[in-house]
Measured scan of single mutants.
Amino acid sequence: ELREAFRLYDKEGNGYISTDVMREILAELDETLSSEDLDAMIDEIDADGSGTVDFEEFMGVMT
């Protein structure tokens, strides 16, 4: 189920989504998050600083 959700956002099928897209997902899930909260969450999610979120990083957030 998580893989299907990931595929919805990984429109190009390249195995990752951008941190911008991940930020939008988080904002949709919790509309009360401030910009600073979102920045901090993205920094934590994208631990390797690649600017992308792969499936493993995505799973870590969603579980």
Rank of each mutant, 00 (worst) to 15 (best):
E1M: 12
E1H: 14
E1V: 12
E1T: 13
L2A: 06
L2P: 03
L2R: 02
R3I: 13
R3C: 15
R3M: 12
R3N: 09
R3D: 14
E4K: 06
E4V: 06
E4M: 05
E4H: 06
E4G: 03
E4W: 05
A5I: 15
F6T: 09
F6C: 15
F6N: 10
F6P: 07
R7P: 13
R7M: 14
L8Y: 15
L8S: 15
L8R: 15
Y9H: 10
Y9N: 04
D10S: 01
D10I: 03
K11Y: 10
K11L: 12
K11E: 10
K11I: 12
E12T: 04
E12R: 02
E12A: 07
E12W: 06
E12S: 05
E12D: 11
G13N: 09
G13K: 04
N14M: 11
N14D: 06
N14P: 01
N14Y: 09
G15T: 02
G15E: 03
G15Y: 02
Y16Q: 06
Y16N: 03
Y16T: 06
I17V: 07
I17H: 00
I17Q: 00
S18E: 04
S18N: 06
S18T: 12
S18I: 04
S18V: 04
S18W: 03
S18P: 10
T19E: 02
T19H: 06
T19W: 05
D20P: 05
D20M: 10
D20T: 13
D20G: 10
D20C: 06
D20K: 13
D20S: 13
V21K: 11
V21Y: 08
M22T: 01
M22Q: 00
M22C: 04
M22V: 07
M22Y: 02
M22D: 00
M22G: 00
R23W: 03
R23E: 01
R23N: 00
E24Y: 12
E24L: 14
E24P: 01
E24Q: 15
E24K: 15
I25Q: 00
L26N: 00
L26K: 00
L26P: 00
A27C: 07
A27G: 08
A27N: 06
A27M: 13
A27V: 10
E28T: 11
E28F: 09
E28I: 07
E28K: 15
E28Q: 14
L29H: 09
L29M: 14
L29I: 10
L29S: 07
L29K: 08
D30Q: 07
D30S: 07
D30H: 12
E31T: 13
E31F: 11
E31R: 14
E31Q: 14
T32C: 08
T32V: 04
T32Q: 09
T32K: 11
L33D: 01
L33I: 07
L33V: 04
L33M: 08
L33W: 10
S34E: 05
S34V: 05
S35P: 14
S35Y: 08
E36M: 09
E36K: 11
E36W: 10
E36F: 10
E36N: 09
E36Y: 10
D37M: 12
D37T: 10
L38Q: 01
L38V: 08
L38F: 03
L38E: 00
L38P: 01
D39H: 05
D39F: 06
D39T: 05
D39Y: 05
D39A: 08
D39V: 06
D39K: 08
A40T: 09
A40W: 10
A40I: 13
A40R: 14
A40Q: 10
A40D: 07
M41H: 04
M41W: 15
M41G: 01
M41E: 02
I42P: 00
I42N: 01
I42W: 02
I42M: 10
I42Y: 01
D43Y: 12
D43N: 14
E44P: 03
E44I: 12
E44S: 13
E44T: 12
E44C: 14
E44W: 14
I45M: 11
I45T: 04
I45E: 01
D46P: 01
D46T: 03
A47R: 13
A47P: 10
A47Y: 09
A47E: 08
A47N: 08
D48A: 08
D48Y: 06
D48N: 10
G49A: 08
G49L: 06
G49V: 04
G49M: 08
S50V: 05
S50G: 05
S50N: 10
S50F: 05
S50Y: 05
G51D: 04
G51I: 01
G51T: 03
T52G: 05
T52L: 08
T52D: 05
V53N: 00
V53H: 01
V53L: 08
D54C: 05
D54Y: 10
D54N: 13
D54T: 14
D54R: 08
F55R: 02
F55N: 01
F55G: 01
E56A: 10
E56G: 09
E56D: 11
E56I: 11
E56F: 12
E56T: 10
E56Y: 11
E56W: 10
E57I: 09
E57L: 09
F58C: 03
F58D: 00
F58G: 00
F58R: 00
M59C: 09
M59K: 11
G60S: 13
G60T: 14
G60W: 15
G60F: 14
V61P: 02
M62Y: 07
M62K: 04
M62C: 12
T63K: 12
T63N: 11
T63M: 13
